[in-house]
Amino acid sequence: MARRASLFTRTVAIGVAAAAMLLAIVLVVPALIDMVAGPDHPPVTRMTSPGEPIPAEALAYRIRPWDLAVPLHSEPREGARPRTLETYRSLRAYPGAPPRIPHEVSPEQSRATLCNACHAGGGYVPRHGAYTPVTPHPEFSDCLQCHVPDAGAVGVGVGAVPADLSLVGWAPADWVARDWPELDQRAMPGSPLWIPHELRLRENCLACHAGPGAVEEIRTTHPDRTDCRSCHVPLVTDDPGFTRPVDRSAGGDS
């Protein structure tokens, strides 16, 4: 009897132990394995869309030759009124300022924000005898938020720029604009020009620097190359050169 009881007890004990072991195997070991090895592959993130593009980079490639009304490499037609650095600067209060609108904007036009109909693609406008400047940021359509017509320009006639800025009612006495950047800044004769201006909202180089509507003095000779910034880089610091913070090679502290 004692033996049988003992046998029974032992059987139960073995059963309990086995169950406990099984439980341990089921519950604990995977957790241990997990602690040691982790899951068997990295968590997958859904990354199918690049998300919002970064304007400074994405827009650099926005304008492609076939998107434009006229090919980028074509020369301005004979007799077209040239767009010069002088007119370009006269429309901006300081380097980088949004240009004023030198032509009439009818109330209908301003409501409908139709600027991009002409300024996204450019092209020659016979009525004005000139090429339309191409905007570097056609993704914005509320143009009048930044670009405003001159009070004095209303009715002045399309394209005409008043020579005397006081006519348009904007000439504070103590205003001192930054100097316009020099045009021909480069490291060595023949090396690519630096980008002498900030890029925000002007990331698309070709809009302003290529095509017959571009300002004469800053029109590129090689609009076929669309990866402009592989050669032309901006200068983000005045620091003239790299200096090692601590030149340990000079001796001493090693």
Partner: peptide, 22 residues
């Protein structure tokens, strides 16, 4: 990055490149 080549020991000494990505 475009402007710097490998550990930068050469390109960082080129002012144009250093000033673009310091």
């Amino acid at each position: 990055v475009l402007e710097h080549w490998h550990s930068g020991s050469m390109t960082r000494r080129i002012p144009t490149l250093h000033r673009a990505v310091p």
